[in-house]
Design a protein around this nucleic acid. Structure first.
Lengths: 326, 326
DNA sequence: GGACGGCGAGAGAGCGCTCTCTGCGACAGG
DNA sequence: CCTGTCGCAGAGAGCGCTCTCTCGCCGTCC
């Protein structure tokens, strides 16, 4: 069970270590016969390159980090699997590892030092707290970083997002086309870009909409809907800024004796799994999470391989998924 | 923006590289004054050890892999965040990285070679396909590995699981205490240990229960409940072997005009987020996923640090979470 | 007083790899 | 025929760290 080194491969193939290395790394200028000899030696010895040794000289870790909020904030977040899946799709064929880090005491600092000491080549930041100084430090240090979602304050950083405003407009037009007269919205938290944009996009289409605030959680969906029914009992169409909130809100409608969508049409946002567990299934605005995650990975890898490439952001178009709720 | 090396720290502190290394790694036998000098040098230079170099000589990657089934099978799986969170809790304080790998073509082989070439110190396998040869290869090679859940075939491998049988019994006794007379169960897939054990544990308590098969998915919960109502319309208590299936099954009950729990009591299994998105909220058997994940991490780390330690498995006790459905 | 033991610091040999630089042979051009 | 050029393989110098081995120093015991 001893390790096979390049040295040994070279010896078996009867070439120098340098030539063996050239073959392993697919360098062009190696004679065909030697190349074959080396390849045979590799498979006969079962050689696997030692990543640490390679990494020591190339100064690449071939690993990127995915920084997530902690479990509480991820709770019931149906995105995680999709995000991981999208990133994986891009990253795996290149042999790059995906390192997961959940926010906890000191995580972001740890990520920073992992980056600085060459253990990570770059990071993707998800659900970043606007007050968090780490993204700023990262770009200042010129380290590769991509944000999931537009930052609250404009900053010279690459991010990938869906056009939240356009998505909300999609929802608004759906409710209008359903001939709803008394239209309301339950918003997300107004200290986040997504929360702000979804409200703004909706109000642009339905300026006289009734607005009740939520914070994207199921819990807040329940509370907001109760409040809405109290202050506006004749509501017949509502845009709820996250599926999770809609999931909490719909039973409130049912308990009040209203039928969805006959009495009140409901449109959500996210097309998360919560949209399918609602009764009736939710009409919602879809964000292509997996594709967005893949794009984040691509952007990050680009930054890593071309350190001086321009920072640019990518905005995906949302689409409306029509189901039974509105 | 040049890197600081140990060499430089040593120079600044006026000691040898060896001594600086001893301080960094907390070795005991260093004079207090020198130790302080080195620590000052470290913070004044902003030194961070290069992991690749260390890893090259220690032959430890300080990284473990988490092998997951692909997105399709994870779909709506509410566990992922909890698992990651539990593993993270154990692993982070030790500076060990968590590398996520979603099953795709060649993933498991890639994981195997990552292990062999020293890029990963060990792996946690989740939702392993019973036919998968990789776990066998891993233990054969003596590589550190822990399974989430009992393997289908007994094998000398460390795993962490909840007592599925006891959990099903808990559900059974709950339904009996509710005075249900006509009791049924919707099972998980019978080619998985969890599916088998939950059925067996339930039947041990309610031998005459009506049995309808599902496969843990929401979809199958819908179908199974429809079938159940057809063949056994007077059912008044049902144990559904996953919350996700229950989530699909409850609306079927509602549509048939039955009230939950008044006409039919429902008990699920998992205490996943699906239990909260059901209407009414689900009474369910709880598995302490986060704690189990933490234990998996601990077991894996033990195997890594003590290669010849005995293989042992850990079984957690389930508990019943009583909510509104039964 | 000399030999010995123990403790703590330094020297230096790698770990396995990449990559530059050198050298050698073949070929073309003057 | 000699020099210049080019292509390709080998030699060897690190990359930054750990860890063994050696050595010097001091205290102790005979």
């Amino acid at each position: 069970m001893k390790r096979v080194t390049l040295e040994e491969v070279a010896r078996v193939a009867g070439v120098s270590r340098a030539t063996a290395s050239r073959v392993v790394n697919g360098a062009s200028s190696v004679d065909e016969s030697l190349r074959h000899a080396v390849q045979r030696a590799i498979s006969s010895t079962g050689y696997l390159p030692n990543i640490a040794a390679r990494s020591l000289v190339t100064r690449r870790a071939d690993a990127i980090g995915l920084l997530l909020p902690d479990e509480r904030r991820m709770d019931g977040d149906p995105h995680l699997a999709s995000v991981v899946s999208g990133v994986t799709r891009v990253v795996r064929p290149l042999g790059v590892h995906l390192v997961l880090m959940m926010t906890g005491p000191g995580t972001r600092e740890r990520a920073l030092s992992d980056l600085r000491c060459g253990r990570l080549d770059g990071v993707i930041l998800v659900h970043t707290d606007p007050a968090d100084p780490v993204p700023g430090q990262l770009i200042e240090a010129g380290l590769p970083v991509v944000l999931a979602g537009r930052p609250l304050e404009p900053m010279p950083i690459t991010y990938v997002d869906v056009d939240q405003t356009a998505g909300a407009a999609l929802a608004a037009r759906r409710l209008k086309s359903l001939q709803c007269n008394r239209i309301a919205t339950i918003t997300g938290p107004q200290d986040t870009p997504a929360g702000q944009d979804r409200l703004a996009g909706f109000l642009a289409e339905v300026p006289d909409a009734v607005v009740v605030h939520g914070d994207f959680t199921r819990q807040s969906g329940v509370a907001a809907m109760e409040k809405l029914l109290r202050c506006c009992p004749d509501v017949d169409g509502v845009f709820i800024a996250s599926d999770l909130m809609a999931n909490g809100a719909i039973p409130v409608l049912h308990r009040s004796g209203r039928k969805v969508p006959d009495d009140v049409a409901v449109v959500g946002f996210d097309d998360s799994s919560a949209a399918l567990t609602s009764e009736p299934e939710l009409t919602t605005v879809r964000q292509p999470i997996t594709d967005m995650a893949a794009e984040m990975a691509r952007q990050l890898l680009r930054q890593i391989t071309e350190p001086r490439s321009p920072t640019m952001s990518v905005i995906f178009e949302p689409s409306l998924v029509v189901r039974d709720s509105g």
